[in-house]
Design a protein around this nucleic acid. Structure first.
Lengths: 211, 211
DNA sequence: ATGTGTGAAGAGCTTCACAGCC
DNA sequence: GGCTGTGAAGCTCTTCACACAT
């Protein structure tokens, strides 16, 4: 058991702060920022920001605020944001391509280093400095390259099999875009991004209290 | 105020049940399903399923379970899943294309009916029966077509402006893929799908309790 | 016997208010 | 004055156990 129970939501918000801090650093208007200032950028209440940060230590200075550079480093540590962690994308359809061509990840602490697909016409294509490989060799290749995180961007029908193979290849975490339930051992962290579900939630809240 | 406070999470889970029920209906093995059976498919505990459903009425039969067809209809009603609600995609990059070419949405209760982009080479392209239009005319077109939901799939730099224009065009809800904070009036429901944040969360949980 | 519906207990997260420090 | 750090209160969501229906 950990010393203190850290809310799940806190982790997500830390990343939001992180991104805001990166902006502030670029603007370079000040070396420090108060929870009130941060709250305006992040749309999170000042007290929440302070409590979130306080779970991990006392990073601020009373009467002043938080050192921007220092806080960036602290959050990096906490979230293990580190481009050394290797990520692979499986499935180079539209979603896979979107991920491969998004250049923002590097500023945000991680890098995609491999891509796999099953289609002959896609294998061998280059995206930046990544060449799409044959999914046939998935387990072997991700194991030999030390891939720790897999992104599942294949069609629903292939998702369960690929998920299993990522697990066999030794990844510790999987981010899935497949609109279906996946079964994973507890040793593998699984997050599903379910667009239909988000849409459904939006619908409910937009059209419920209606005339 | 509503009669009972309904957990936010319940809404998301309802959609998960919905999808599972659609599968069960297709399999056509039985007319009914118990919360225990559903729980195995959805990976949600039986008691949670029962409580979630009980917020909206008494849909089950004691000793038997829930009628599959009946429950599908009820959830459709609750979530306002209805292909009559019109959705537009703004930004036909990789993410936009992924959404336009995903055929599953129709089974899941909504339809994308328009697409916009600013790039001359994309405007006029067809995806299924949708022709990409010039984002120039965004407000006018979504208003005249009665678009109620906008999906924001443009680069970060354009996101705040387009968000504002969607709002002006009269949408009631926006689903954004932009990795930045957006400011919207309370009258517009906003959900942000933040992939970097999900990655960061995964990282934290995968590499924290580590050696 | 089987399986739903639900009040009450429990766990988790947020908010508040203010003590403590600059 | 300004701002952080935090215990305690308040709120929300989940879990449990069992009454109730078929």
């Amino acid at each position: 058991m950990n010393p203190k129970p850290i809310p799940n939501e806190t982790i997500g918000r830390l990343f939001v702060y992180f991104r805001a801090l990166m902006c502030l650093r670029k603007e370079n208007k000040s070396k420090t920022v108060s929870s009130t200032q941060l709250s305006e950028i992040c749309q999170v209440k000042p007290a929440v920001i302070r409590k979130d940060l306080s779970y991990f230590g006392e990073f601020g200075t009373r009467g002043v605020g938080y050192g921007i550079e220092e806080l960036i480093q602290k959050i990096k540590e906490i979230l293990k944001l580190d481009p050394v962690i290797k990520v692979a994308v499986v499935g180079v359809g539209n979603i896979g391509r979107a991920l491969l061509s998004y250049s923002g990840f590097e500023n945000e602490g991680f890098t995609i280093v491999m891509a796999f697909d099953s289609r002959a016409e896609v294998i061998g294509q280059k995206f930046g400095n990544i060449t799409v490989e044959d999914v046939e060799n998935l387990e072997k290749r991700i194991r030999s390259e030390g891939i720790q995180v897999g992104i599942l961007a294949v069609p629903e029908s292939a998702a369960p099999v690929i998920a299993r193979r990522l697990e066999k290849g030794g990844v510790k975490a999987v981010l899935s875009f497949a609109p279906c339930q996946l079964f994973m051992p507890d040793s593998v962290q699984l997050t599903c991004v379910d667009l239909s579900m988000e849409m459904a939630r939006l619908f409910y809240y937009s059209f419920s209290g209606d005339v």
